[in-house]
Structure formats: structure tokens, C-alpha cells
């Protein structure tokens, strides 16, 4: 009997442990909204024909709501802050477990970063709320920086225990139900911070993408081919960090060799109508709502005209879901 009591006591403490573990984790609801992106995908109906992959240049710049409104395209942005190319690969792999889209749009900005750009804080934003799967394990192993431990991803308390003195009302308010921040992975930012100046363009010692970057780009390409998915490479229209001609040429060459479409949308900025005095929230690095709307309208046309996608605006079931979201979306952008 006394051993049963002991087991009960240990059980209660395990429950307390998980309670505290959850309490101490950042809630990514009002602050660090980007951390909510991974989590929000799981709540979605998985019926998207287009999946966007990449870093902040996708989740800030492409609005699936506009793609639907303008062309009836169902899409989701699986973007994260500083999503590195190895991470894009594992995120794609995970996505394919839930759904097989017709088109995957990959923002090639991360090609410039090799293995050395791994960063613990960005890892956390991406991985903390990811569901456990083989892909998550592989992603953690390929993302960890020096000093990080796998165990701290299994038990986040090992990473976040020091937050006990920094807990805010957000941690309690969103303890059970975290806030929904994105619309199909798109994070709305309405703020305007016009472009004024940028750091001078540096001459680099080496413009070649690393073998590491190519290894994962090849993996993404192969995965798409294996699943009959059209892979589109894009470069979002950000003024900074500079996308050098040497980078662009390498991607064009890669696209040519692998029979892929590549759109450098920065070159199309005037056609799209992006005004960096009005359409950016951080001086040209990312687009704000106005810029994202223009870009998404433009890109919706490219997708509609060139890739055999379904117009779901006439589909009763799907249109009701999207119309509901659009109502919320329009309400929010008018606020």
C-alpha cells in the first residue's frame, strides 16, 4: 500500500512538472507572435493547393487570404523567422504527412546562409510548438547550436526555467488557449516605417552558395518531384539584406538545370507597385499589410495563369471556411 502511495505522489509531481513546464514556456500570443506560426498550422483543415516555405520574407509578404479572394487559391504559409534551408526541408516533409499540395513556393533567401547561421532563439520560435514526429527529431538534430541539448526540446523547462521571474499576465491568460495570430500563416503588420537608407553594399569574399545549402535545396527538389509537386523558387522583394546578382545567377542556373520556375520578385517591384515609403514596416526589409496585399495580388495572377490550380470560390464547403476567415481578416485590417 505504501508503495502505491509513493507512485501516486510521484504521479502528482509529474503532473505538477508538466503544468509548470507549460506555464514557463513562452506563449507566443501577444509578444513574439512569430513563435505561434508552427502551432497554428495544426489547427487548419489540410487542403491547401499551395504551400509557401521560407523565412520572414514569406510570412510577412504573402497573404493567403488575398490569394483566395483574388483567384480562389487555397494556400498556407509555413514560414518562420530565419527559417534555414534545412528547416524548410523538414517542415516540407512534415507538411507532406498531412497534405500533398499541387505547388510549393520556396523563398530562396536562406540559400545565402549556410550551416553557420544556426541560432538558438530562432530554433525555439520554430520548434517549441512543433508536434512530435520523426521530422521534428531530425529538424532538432540538424538545427541545434553548440550548448543546446535535445533534452531541452523534450522538456522545455530545462530551457525556460529562468522565466519564473519574468512571467507576465500573457503566460496565464493564454495558458490553456493561445492566441491565433496568423491568417493561414500570414502575420499582419499594419505599421509603416518608410525606407530611408540602408547599410552600404559590401563586397563579399565569396558569393557561392555553400554545399550545405545546395544539399538541402536538392532534397527539397527531389521531395517535390517524388510527390508530383510543382516547385517554384522565388525571391521576395526585400531591399535588405541585399540579394546580389551573383546569388541570382546561381539560382537561375539551378532552376534551369532542374526545370524549375524562378521569380525574382524584387525585379518586379515596380510592376507590382511596391512603394517602399508606404509598403514596408521596417524600412524595406519586410512588407506591411499594404505591401503584402499588392504582392499577393500580383502573385495570385502568376499562380492562376501558370499552374493548373482550382478556383475554390465555387466550392461550397471550402468557400464557407474561407469566407468566414475573410470576414475576420477584413475586420482586422479595417480596425
Amino acid at each position: 500500500m505504501k508503495y502505491i502511495k509513493c507512485i501516486i505522489i510521484i504521479g502528482v509531481f509529474i503532473l505538477i512538472f508538466f503544468f509548470i513546464n507549460h506555464l514557463l514556456m513562452p506563449k507566443y500570443s501577444e509578444t513574439l507572435r512569430e513563435g505561434s506560426l508552427t502551432r497554428e498550422y495544426y489547427k487548419e483543415d489540410k487542403n491547401h493547393e499551395v504551400i509557401f516555405l521560407g523565412d520572414c520574407e514569406v510570412y510577412a509578404n504573402f497573404s493567403p487570404m488575398v490569394l483566395y479572394e483574388k483567384a480562389g487559391i487555397t494556400s498556407y504559409v509555413r514560414g518562420n523567422s530565419q527559417q534555414l534551408i534545412n528547416q524548410s526541408y523538414y517542415i516540407l516533409k512534415e507538411t507532406l504527412k498531412y497534405e500533398i499540395p499541387k505547388v510549393v513556393v520556396f523563398n530562396v533567401n536562406s540559400m545565402r546562409y549556410g550551416e553557420d547561421e544556426k541560432n538558438e532563439a530562432y530554433n525555439r520560435l520554430l520548434i517549441d510548438n512543433m508536434k512530435w514526429s520523426k521530422e521534428k527529431i531530425d529538424l532538432i538534430n540538424s538545427s541545434m547550436t553548440e550548448g543546446e541539448t535535445f533534452l531541452s526540446y523534450v522538456f522545455p523547462i530545462l530551457r525556460y526555467h529562468s522565466r519564473f521571474s519574468k512571467l507576465t499576465s500573457e503566460d496565464f491568460k493564454y495558458f490553456l488557449k493561445p492566441k491565433q495570430n496568423s491568417f493561414n500563416g500570414f502575420l499582419i503588420t499594419k505599421k509603416i516605417k518608410p525606407y530611408t537608407s540602408l547599410p552600404p553594399k559590401k563586397v563579399l569574399a565569396n558569393y557561392n552558395f555553400s554545399d550545405y545549402s545546395y544539399e538541402y535545396l536538392n532534397k527539397i527538389t527531389e521531395l517535390c518531384q517524388k510527390n508530383n509537386i510543382e516547385l517554384i523558387l522565388i525571391k521576395a522583394p526585400s531591399l535588405y539584406p541585399y540579394w546580389y546578382n551573383e546569388y541570382d545567377n546561381q539560382i537561375r542556373q539551378y532552376a534551369l538545370e532542374n526545370n524549375l520556375d524562378y521569380y525574382n520578385l524584387f525585379e518586379e517591384k515596380d510592376v507590382i507597385g511596391i512603394d517602399y515609403q508606404l509598403d514596408t514596416y521596417d524600412g524595406g526589409l519586410h512588407l506591411n499589410l499594404s505591401g503584402a496585399t499588392k504582392l499577393s495580388e500580383y502573385f495570385a495572377k502568376i499562380l492562376k495563369d501558370n499552374y493548373n490550380l482550382t478556383d475554390y470560390r465555387t466550392d461550397k464547403k471550402i468557400s464557407s471556411i474561407y469566407n468566414e476567415k475573410l470576414k475576420e481578416y477584413n475586420k482586422l485590417i479595417k480596425e
Binding site: 543546446e148 530545462l158 530551457r159 529562468s162
Partner: peptide, 17 residues
């Protein structure tokens, strides 16, 4: 168990330290 929980929460260890 109580002491273990106290160490886990109030300990100074892990990444960043």
C-alpha cells in the same frame, strides 16, 4: 520530489548560462 521540482524551476543551468 519537491526538492527536484524546486531545483528544476529555481536552478541556474542550461542554455544561456
Amino acid at each position: 520530489c519537491l526538492l527536484v521540482i524546486i531545483i528544476l524551476i529555481f536552478g541556474v543551468y542550461g542554455f544561456g548560462f
